[in-house]
Write a protein that binds this DNA or RNA. Structure first.
Lengths: 194, 194
DNA sequence: TGACTGACAGATTTCCAATTCTGTCAGTCC
DNA sequence: GGACTGACAGAATTGGAAATCTGTCAGTCA
Protein backbone atom coordinates (compact mmCIF):
# COMPACT_ATOMS: atom_id res chain seq x y z
CA UNK A 1 0.00 0.00 0.00
CA UNK A 2 2.46 2.71 -1.12
CA UNK A 3 1.34 6.27 -1.82
CA UNK A 4 -0.76 8.57 0.35
CA UNK A 5 -3.25 7.20 2.84
CA UNK A 6 -6.78 7.52 1.43
CA UNK A 7 -10.23 6.45 2.55
CA UNK A 8 -10.41 4.00 -0.33
CA UNK A 9 -6.97 2.59 0.40
CA UNK A 10 -7.91 2.01 4.02
CA UNK A 11 -11.17 0.34 2.98
CA UNK A 12 -9.35 -1.98 0.57
CA UNK A 13 -6.95 -3.08 3.27
CA UNK A 14 -9.65 -3.27 5.95
CA UNK A 15 -11.61 -5.60 3.72
CA UNK A 16 -8.63 -7.91 3.22
CA UNK A 17 -7.87 -7.96 6.92
CA UNK A 18 -11.51 -8.68 7.77
CA UNK A 19 -11.60 -11.60 5.36
CA UNK A 20 -8.36 -12.99 6.74
CA UNK A 21 -8.93 -12.58 10.47
CA UNK A 22 -12.72 -12.64 10.64
CA UNK A 23 -15.03 -10.04 12.12
CA UNK A 24 -14.47 -10.74 15.80
CA UNK A 25 -10.68 -10.66 15.77
CA UNK A 26 -10.01 -7.72 13.47
CA UNK A 27 -8.79 -4.60 15.25
CA UNK A 28 -8.03 -1.13 14.04
CA UNK A 29 -4.43 -1.83 15.02
CA UNK A 30 -4.41 -4.81 12.64
CA UNK A 31 -5.63 -2.67 9.78
CA UNK A 32 -3.07 0.03 10.56
CA UNK A 33 -0.28 -2.55 10.76
CA UNK A 34 -1.25 -3.96 7.35
CA UNK A 35 -1.05 -0.42 5.98
CA UNK A 36 2.23 0.14 7.79
CA UNK A 37 0.99 3.27 9.55
CA UNK A 38 0.08 4.03 13.15
CA UNK A 39 -3.50 3.37 14.13
CA UNK A 40 -3.89 7.07 14.89
CA UNK A 41 -3.67 7.72 11.16
CA UNK A 42 -6.66 5.53 10.47
CA UNK A 43 -8.66 7.64 12.92
CA UNK A 44 -7.79 10.67 10.80
CA UNK A 45 -10.02 9.19 8.06
CA UNK A 46 -12.65 7.31 10.07
CA UNK A 47 -14.03 8.73 13.27
CA UNK A 48 -14.38 5.34 14.97
CA UNK A 49 -14.00 1.62 14.47
CA UNK A 50 -17.77 1.45 13.93
CA UNK A 51 -17.56 4.04 11.14
CA UNK A 52 -14.85 2.00 9.42
CA UNK A 53 -16.87 -1.20 9.78
CA UNK A 54 -19.97 0.54 8.41
CA UNK A 55 -18.06 1.87 5.40
CA UNK A 56 -16.78 -1.62 4.55
CA UNK A 57 -20.29 -3.00 4.97
CA UNK A 58 -21.67 -0.29 2.75
CA UNK A 59 -19.35 -1.38 -0.05
CA UNK A 60 -20.30 -5.03 0.34
CA UNK A 61 -23.99 -4.24 0.28
CA UNK A 62 -23.58 -2.01 -2.75
CA UNK A 63 -21.89 -4.87 -4.55
CA UNK A 64 -24.95 -7.02 -3.82
CA UNK A 65 -27.47 -4.48 -5.07
CA UNK A 66 -25.57 -3.26 -8.16
CA UNK A 67 -26.22 -6.37 -10.33
CA UNK A 68 -29.85 -6.25 -9.24
CA UNK A 69 -30.11 -2.74 -10.60
CA UNK A 70 -29.48 -4.12 -14.08
CA UNK A 71 -32.41 -6.48 -13.72
CA UNK A 72 -34.64 -3.64 -12.60
CA UNK A 73 -33.61 -1.62 -15.66
CA UNK A 74 -34.06 -4.64 -17.95
CA UNK A 75 -36.63 -4.89 -20.71
CA UNK A 76 -38.46 -8.18 -20.08
CA UNK A 77 -41.88 -8.62 -18.52
CA UNK A 78 -42.38 -7.35 -14.98
CA UNK A 79 -43.15 -10.88 -13.81
CA UNK A 80 -39.98 -12.25 -15.40
CA UNK A 81 -37.84 -9.50 -13.93
CA UNK A 82 -39.40 -9.97 -10.49
CA UNK A 83 -38.60 -13.66 -10.50
CA UNK A 84 -35.13 -13.01 -11.82
CA UNK A 85 -34.52 -10.29 -9.25
CA UNK A 86 -35.53 -12.37 -6.23
CA UNK A 87 -33.71 -15.46 -7.48
CA UNK A 88 -30.54 -13.45 -8.08
CA UNK A 89 -30.70 -11.86 -4.65
CA UNK A 90 -31.20 -15.27 -3.01
CA UNK A 91 -28.46 -16.88 -5.10
CA UNK A 92 -26.02 -14.08 -4.30
CA UNK A 93 -26.55 -14.24 -0.55
CA UNK A 94 -26.58 -18.04 -0.49
CA UNK A 95 -23.49 -18.10 -2.69
CA UNK A 96 -21.54 -15.91 -0.30
CA UNK A 97 -22.67 -18.07 2.63
CA UNK A 98 -21.48 -21.21 0.85
CA UNK A 99 -18.24 -20.08 -0.72
CA UNK A 100 -16.95 -17.39 1.58
CA UNK A 101 -18.17 -18.25 5.07
CA UNK A 102 -15.69 -15.93 6.72
CA UNK A 103 -17.02 -13.00 4.75
CA UNK A 104 -20.57 -14.09 5.39
CA UNK A 105 -20.01 -14.29 9.13
CA UNK A 106 -18.88 -10.67 9.05
CA UNK A 107 -21.87 -9.89 6.91
CA UNK A 108 -24.15 -11.48 9.44
CA UNK A 109 -22.59 -9.99 12.51
CA UNK A 110 -22.69 -6.63 10.83
CA UNK A 111 -26.38 -7.07 10.08
CA UNK A 112 -26.87 -7.05 13.83
CA UNK A 113 -24.51 -4.22 14.61
CA UNK A 114 -24.66 -1.76 11.72
CA UNK A 115 -28.43 -1.41 11.88
CA UNK A 116 -28.59 1.90 10.12
CA UNK A 117 -26.52 0.86 7.11
CA UNK A 118 -28.50 -2.33 6.72
CA UNK A 119 -31.84 -0.55 7.05
CA UNK A 120 -30.82 1.76 4.20
CA UNK A 121 -29.83 -1.29 2.15
CA UNK A 122 -33.20 -2.93 2.74
CA UNK A 123 -34.99 0.29 1.81
CA UNK A 124 -32.96 0.37 -1.36
CA UNK A 125 -33.84 -3.22 -2.23
CA UNK A 126 -37.53 -2.65 -1.51
CA UNK A 127 -37.45 0.39 -3.78
CA UNK A 128 -35.92 -1.71 -6.58
CA UNK A 129 -38.73 -4.25 -6.36
CA UNK A 130 -41.18 -1.36 -6.15
CA UNK A 131 -39.89 -0.01 -9.47
CA UNK A 132 -40.42 -3.33 -11.23
CA UNK A 133 -43.92 -3.55 -9.78
CA UNK A 134 -44.63 0.03 -10.85
CA UNK A 135 -43.59 -0.84 -14.40
CA UNK A 136 -45.92 -3.81 -14.40
CA UNK A 137 -48.81 -1.80 -13.03
CA UNK A 138 -48.26 0.95 -15.60
CA UNK A 139 -48.33 -1.52 -18.49
CA UNK A 140 -51.38 -3.32 -17.11
CA UNK A 141 -49.38 -6.52 -16.68
CA UNK A 142 -49.89 -6.44 -12.92
CA UNK A 143 -52.90 -5.58 -10.77
CA UNK A 144 -53.22 -1.99 -9.56
CA UNK A 145 -51.43 -2.38 -6.23
CA UNK A 146 -49.34 0.20 -4.39
CA UNK A 147 -45.83 -0.53 -5.77
CA UNK A 148 -44.07 0.52 -2.61
CA UNK A 149 -46.22 -1.69 -0.36
CA UNK A 150 -46.08 -4.61 -2.75
CA UNK A 151 -42.33 -4.24 -3.21
CA UNK A 152 -41.68 -4.46 0.49
CA UNK A 153 -44.17 -7.32 0.85
CA UNK A 154 -42.33 -9.36 -1.81
CA UNK A 155 -39.06 -8.72 -0.04
CA UNK A 156 -40.50 -9.72 3.32
CA UNK A 157 -42.26 -12.78 1.98
CA UNK A 158 -39.00 -14.08 0.56
CA UNK A 159 -36.86 -13.20 3.60
CA UNK A 160 -36.28 -16.85 4.39
CA UNK A 161 -34.33 -17.25 1.15
CA UNK A 162 -32.01 -14.24 1.36
CA UNK A 163 -32.02 -12.89 4.93
CA UNK A 164 -28.75 -13.81 6.70
CA UNK A 165 -30.68 -14.78 9.82
CA UNK A 166 -31.89 -17.86 7.95
CA UNK A 167 -28.50 -18.97 6.67
CA UNK A 168 -28.54 -22.18 8.69
CA UNK A 169 -31.74 -23.25 6.91
CA UNK A 170 -30.09 -23.03 3.49
CA UNK A 171 -28.75 -26.58 3.45
CA UNK A 172 -31.97 -28.06 2.07
CA UNK A 173 -31.46 -28.97 -1.61
CA UNK A 174 -35.14 -28.29 -2.38
CA UNK A 175 -34.67 -24.65 -1.41
CA UNK A 176 -34.90 -23.41 -5.00
CA UNK A 177 -38.19 -25.22 -5.54
CA UNK A 178 -39.55 -23.77 -2.34
CA UNK A 179 -38.61 -20.28 -3.43
CA UNK A 180 -40.36 -20.92 -6.72
CA UNK A 181 -43.47 -22.06 -4.86
CA UNK A 182 -43.51 -18.83 -2.86
CA UNK A 183 -42.91 -16.79 -6.01
CA UNK A 184 -45.76 -18.61 -7.79
CA UNK A 185 -48.12 -17.58 -5.03
CA UNK A 186 -46.92 -14.01 -4.89
CA UNK A 187 -46.95 -13.46 -8.63
CA UNK A 188 -50.39 -15.00 -8.95
CA UNK A 189 -51.48 -12.51 -6.33
CA UNK A 190 -50.02 -9.65 -8.34
CA UNK A 191 -51.56 -10.64 -11.66
CA UNK A 192 -54.77 -8.73 -12.46
CA UNK A 193 -58.10 -10.57 -12.28
CA UNK A 194 -59.02 -11.11 -15.92
CA UNK B 1 -42.26 -31.29 44.66
CA UNK B 2 -43.20 -34.08 47.08
CA UNK B 3 -44.12 -37.56 45.86
CA UNK B 4 -42.21 -39.80 43.46
CA UNK B 5 -39.88 -38.36 40.86
CA UNK B 6 -41.58 -38.44 37.46
CA UNK B 7 -40.75 -37.20 33.99
CA UNK B 8 -43.56 -34.68 34.19
CA UNK B 9 -42.50 -33.45 37.61
CA UNK B 10 -38.95 -32.92 36.42
CA UNK B 11 -40.22 -31.07 33.36
CA UNK B 12 -42.41 -28.77 35.50
CA UNK B 13 -39.47 -27.88 37.70
CA UNK B 14 -37.03 -27.61 34.80
CA UNK B 15 -39.36 -25.12 33.17
CA UNK B 16 -39.52 -22.97 36.29
CA UNK B 17 -35.77 -23.06 36.73
CA UNK B 18 -35.21 -22.16 33.08
CA UNK B 19 -37.54 -19.18 33.34
CA UNK B 20 -35.84 -17.99 36.50
CA UNK B 21 -32.19 -18.49 35.60
CA UNK B 22 -32.32 -18.21 31.83
CA UNK B 23 -31.11 -20.75 29.28
CA UNK B 24 -27.37 -20.16 29.56
CA UNK B 25 -27.09 -20.47 33.32
CA UNK B 26 -29.41 -23.36 34.01
CA UNK B 27 -27.65 -26.60 34.92
CA UNK B 28 -28.92 -30.06 35.59
CA UNK B 29 -27.61 -29.59 39.11
CA UNK B 30 -29.87 -26.55 39.51
CA UNK B 31 -32.90 -28.54 38.44
CA UNK B 32 -31.99 -31.41 40.77
CA UNK B 33 -31.47 -28.99 43.67
CA UNK B 34 -34.90 -27.43 43.07
CA UNK B 35 -36.37 -30.94 43.21
CA UNK B 36 -34.28 -31.76 46.28
CA UNK B 37 -32.74 -34.86 44.71
CA UNK B 38 -29.26 -35.65 43.47
CA UNK B 39 -28.57 -34.83 39.85
CA UNK B 40 -27.96 -38.51 39.21
CA UNK B 41 -31.67 -39.08 39.72
CA UNK B 42 -32.54 -36.70 36.93
CA UNK B 43 -30.33 -38.75 34.61
CA UNK B 44 -32.46 -41.74 35.47
CA UNK B 45 -35.35 -40.10 33.59
CA UNK B 46 -33.51 -38.12 30.89
CA UNK B 47 -30.47 -39.52 29.17
CA UNK B 48 -28.73 -36.16 28.84
CA UNK B 49 -29.08 -32.47 29.48
CA UNK B 50 -29.94 -32.08 25.79
CA UNK B 51 -32.77 -34.61 26.11
CA UNK B 52 -34.19 -32.67 29.05
CA UNK B 53 -33.92 -29.39 27.17
CA UNK B 54 -35.60 -30.92 24.13
CA UNK B 55 -38.47 -32.26 26.22
CA UNK B 56 -39.11 -28.84 27.75
CA UNK B 57 -38.96 -27.29 24.29
CA UNK B 58 -41.36 -29.87 23.00
CA UNK B 59 -43.93 -28.82 25.61
CA UNK B 60 -43.50 -25.14 24.81
CA UNK B 61 -43.92 -25.73 21.10
CA UNK B 62 -46.98 -27.89 21.67
CA UNK B 63 -48.53 -25.07 23.65
CA UNK B 64 -48.00 -22.80 20.65
CA UNK B 65 -49.54 -25.18 18.14
CA UNK B 66 -52.50 -26.39 20.24
CA UNK B 67 -54.63 -23.21 19.91
CA UNK B 68 -53.85 -23.18 16.21
CA UNK B 69 -55.35 -26.63 15.91
CA UNK B 70 -58.73 -25.17 16.89
CA UNK B 71 -58.51 -22.68 14.05
CA UNK B 72 -57.70 -25.48 11.61
CA UNK B 73 -60.72 -27.41 12.80
CA UNK B 74 -62.93 -24.31 12.66
CA UNK B 75 -65.88 -23.84 10.36
CA UNK B 76 -65.29 -20.49 8.62
CA UNK B 77 -64.01 -19.97 5.09
CA UNK B 78 -60.58 -21.34 4.24
CA UNK B 79 -59.35 -17.83 3.53
CA UNK B 80 -60.62 -16.52 6.86
CA UNK B 81 -59.10 -19.41 8.76
CA UNK B 82 -55.77 -19.00 6.95
CA UNK B 83 -55.58 -15.33 7.88
CA UNK B 84 -56.64 -16.11 11.43
CA UNK B 85 -54.12 -18.92 11.72
CA UNK B 86 -51.13 -16.91 10.54
CA UNK B 87 -52.10 -13.86 12.58
CA UNK B 88 -52.53 -15.98 15.69
CA UNK B 89 -49.18 -17.67 15.18
CA UNK B 90 -47.46 -14.30 14.69
CA UNK B 91 -49.27 -12.74 17.66
CA UNK B 92 -48.37 -15.68 19.91
CA UNK B 93 -44.68 -15.59 19.07
CA UNK B 94 -44.47 -11.81 19.20
CA UNK B 95 -46.42 -11.81 22.47
CA UNK B 96 -43.96 -14.17 24.11
CA UNK B 97 -41.07 -12.05 22.85
CA UNK B 98 -42.64 -8.91 24.32
CA UNK B 99 -43.97 -10.14 27.62
CA UNK B 100 -41.68 -12.97 28.61
CA UNK B 101 -38.25 -12.14 27.15
CA UNK B 102 -36.48 -14.64 29.37
CA UNK B 103 -38.64 -17.45 28.06
CA UNK B 104 -38.25 -16.19 24.53
CA UNK B 105 -34.47 -16.10 24.80
CA UNK B 106 -34.55 -19.77 25.77
CA UNK B 107 -36.97 -20.38 22.95
CA UNK B 108 -34.60 -18.73 20.52
CA UNK B 109 -31.45 -20.39 21.73
CA UNK B 110 -33.25 -23.69 21.63
CA UNK B 111 -34.31 -23.03 18.05
CA UNK B 112 -30.62 -23.12 17.22
CA UNK B 113 -29.72 -26.11 19.35
CA UNK B 114 -32.69 -28.46 19.31
CA UNK B 115 -32.83 -28.65 15.54
CA UNK B 116 -34.72 -31.91 15.38
CA UNK B 117 -37.51 -30.90 17.75
CA UNK B 118 -37.98 -27.61 15.96
CA UNK B 119 -37.99 -29.24 12.54
CA UNK B 120 -40.81 -31.52 13.71
CA UNK B 121 -42.69 -28.48 15.01
CA UNK B 122 -42.33 -26.68 11.68
CA UNK B 123 -43.50 -29.79 9.84
CA UNK B 124 -46.50 -29.89 12.13
CA UNK B 125 -47.33 -26.24 11.49
CA UNK B 126 -46.92 -26.66 7.74
CA UNK B 127 -49.29 -29.63 7.88
CA UNK B 128 -51.88 -27.53 9.72
CA UNK B 129 -51.81 -24.86 7.02
CA UNK B 130 -51.91 -27.63 4.45
CA UNK B 131 -55.15 -28.95 5.95
CA UNK B 132 -56.83 -25.54 5.72
CA UNK B 133 -55.67 -25.21 2.12
CA UNK B 134 -56.90 -28.71 1.34
CA UNK B 135 -60.35 -27.78 2.73
CA UNK B 136 -60.42 -24.70 0.52
CA UNK B 137 -59.36 -26.64 -2.55
CA UNK B 138 -61.98 -29.32 -1.90
CA UNK B 139 -64.78 -26.74 -1.63
CA UNK B 140 -63.57 -24.87 -4.69
CA UNK B 141 -62.88 -21.78 -2.63
CA UNK B 142 -59.18 -21.96 -3.44
CA UNK B 143 -57.33 -22.74 -6.67
CA UNK B 144 -56.27 -26.33 -7.25
CA UNK B 145 -52.79 -26.14 -5.73
CA UNK B 146 -50.87 -28.86 -3.91
CA UNK B 147 -51.94 -28.28 -0.28
CA UNK B 148 -48.67 -29.50 1.16
CA UNK B 149 -46.54 -27.29 -1.07
CA UNK B 150 -48.81 -24.28 -0.60
CA UNK B 151 -48.96 -24.80 3.17
CA UNK B 152 -45.23 -24.74 3.50
CA UNK B 153 -44.98 -21.79 1.13
CA UNK B 154 -47.38 -19.75 3.26
CA UNK B 155 -45.39 -20.59 6.35
CA UNK B 156 -42.11 -19.63 4.69
CA UNK B 157 -43.48 -16.47 3.14
CA UNK B 158 -44.60 -15.25 6.58
CA UNK B 159 -41.43 -16.31 8.42
CA UNK B 160 -40.46 -12.72 9.07
CA UNK B 161 -43.52 -12.31 11.30
CA UNK B 162 -43.22 -15.40 13.46
CA UNK B 163 -39.71 -16.86 13.11
CA UNK B 164 -37.66 -16.14 16.26
CA UNK B 165 -34.65 -15.18 14.11
CA UNK B 166 -36.52 -12.01 13.18
CA UNK B 167 -37.48 -10.98 16.71
CA UNK B 168 -35.35 -7.86 16.61
CA UNK B 169 -37.36 -6.59 13.64
CA UNK B 170 -40.64 -6.78 15.55
CA UNK B 171 -40.43 -3.30 17.03
CA UNK B 172 -42.01 -1.64 13.99
CA UNK B 173 -45.62 -0.65 14.84
CA UNK B 174 -46.68 -1.14 11.21
CA UNK B 175 -45.82 -4.82 11.44
CA UNK B 176 -49.46 -5.93 11.47
CA UNK B 177 -50.19 -3.97 8.32
CA UNK B 178 -47.16 -5.46 6.64
CA UNK B 179 -48.29 -8.96 7.53
CA UNK B 180 -51.70 -8.13 6.10
CA UNK B 181 -50.05 -6.91 2.89
CA UNK B 182 -48.18 -10.21 2.57
CA UNK B 183 -51.35 -12.17 3.34
CA UNK B 184 -53.29 -10.17 0.74
CA UNK B 185 -50.77 -11.17 -1.90
CA UNK B 186 -50.66 -14.80 -0.85
CA UNK B 187 -54.43 -15.24 -0.59
CA UNK B 188 -54.97 -13.53 -3.92
CA UNK B 189 -52.55 -16.04 -5.33
CA UNK B 190 -54.54 -18.90 -3.82
CA UNK B 191 -57.95 -17.71 -5.04
CA UNK B 192 -59.07 -19.47 -8.23
CA UNK B 193 -59.04 -17.52 -11.49
CA UNK B 194 -62.69 -16.76 -12.18
C1' DT C 1 0.76 23.76 7.62
C1' DG C 2 -1.02 19.52 7.87
C1' DA C 3 -0.29 14.43 7.59
C1' DC C 4 1.49 11.41 10.78
C1' DT C 5 3.46 9.43 15.22
C1' DG C 6 3.64 7.61 19.77
C1' DA C 7 2.33 7.79 24.42
C1' DC C 8 -1.59 7.69 27.31
C1' DA C 9 -6.32 6.65 30.12
C1' DG C 10 -10.00 3.95 30.31
C1' DA C 11 -12.53 0.10 28.21
C1' DT C 12 -12.29 -4.46 26.38
C1' DT C 13 -10.35 -8.88 25.58
C1' DT C 14 -7.33 -12.78 26.58
C1' DC C 15 -5.54 -16.21 29.24
C1' DC C 16 -5.11 -19.66 32.64
C1' DA C 17 -5.91 -21.63 37.15
C1' DA C 18 -9.67 -22.90 40.03
C1' DT C 19 -14.25 -24.04 40.21
C1' DT C 20 -18.38 -26.18 38.56
C1' DC C 21 -20.76 -29.18 35.55
C1' DT C 22 -21.98 -33.51 32.87
C1' DG C 23 -22.54 -38.16 32.64
C1' DT C 24 -21.36 -42.79 34.91
C1' DC C 25 -21.56 -46.29 38.22
C1' DA C 26 -20.68 -49.01 42.35
C1' DG C 27 -22.87 -49.01 46.49
C1' DT C 28 -26.84 -47.77 50.00
C1' DC C 29 -31.38 -47.98 51.61
C1' DC C 30 -36.06 -49.41 51.95
C1' DG D 1 -35.04 -55.25 43.31
C1' DG D 2 -35.15 -50.94 42.02
C1' DA D 3 -35.10 -45.86 43.14
C1' DC D 4 -31.69 -43.09 44.73
C1' DT D 5 -27.04 -41.29 46.36
C1' DG D 6 -22.41 -39.59 46.27
C1' DA D 7 -17.90 -39.82 44.54
C1' DC D 8 -15.39 -39.64 40.37
C1' DA D 9 -13.00 -38.37 35.51
C1' DG D 10 -12.99 -35.49 31.94
C1' DA D 11 -15.22 -31.42 29.84
C1' DA D 12 -16.89 -26.83 30.29
C1' DT D 13 -17.27 -22.48 32.67
C1' DT D 14 -15.80 -18.72 35.65
C1' DG D 15 -13.10 -14.98 37.70
C1' DG D 16 -9.66 -11.87 37.79
C1' DA D 17 -4.90 -10.44 36.68
C1' DA D 18 -2.34 -9.25 32.57
C1' DA D 19 -2.31 -7.87 27.94
C1' DT D 20 -4.38 -5.51 24.16
C1' DC D 21 -7.38 -2.25 22.07
C1' DT D 22 -9.96 2.23 21.25
C1' DG D 23 -9.98 6.89 20.85
C1' DT D 24 -7.39 11.36 21.92
C1' DC D 25 -3.91 14.69 21.47
C1' DA D 26 0.40 17.22 22.03
C1' DG D 27 4.36 16.98 19.51
C1' DT D 28 7.44 15.72 15.25
C1' DC D 29 8.77 16.13 10.65
C1' DA D 30 8.95 17.40 5.88
Amino acid sequence: MAGPLTREGILDTAEQVLRRYGPAKTTVVDVARALDVSHGSVYRHFSSKAALRDAVTQRWLDRVSAPLEEIVAGSGSAEGRLRDWVRTLAATKQGIAREDPELFATFRRVTDEAGEVVAAHVDHLAAQVGRIVADGVASGELAAVDPEVAGRAVLRATALFHHPAHADEWGDPRLDDQLDAVLDLLLDGLRPRS
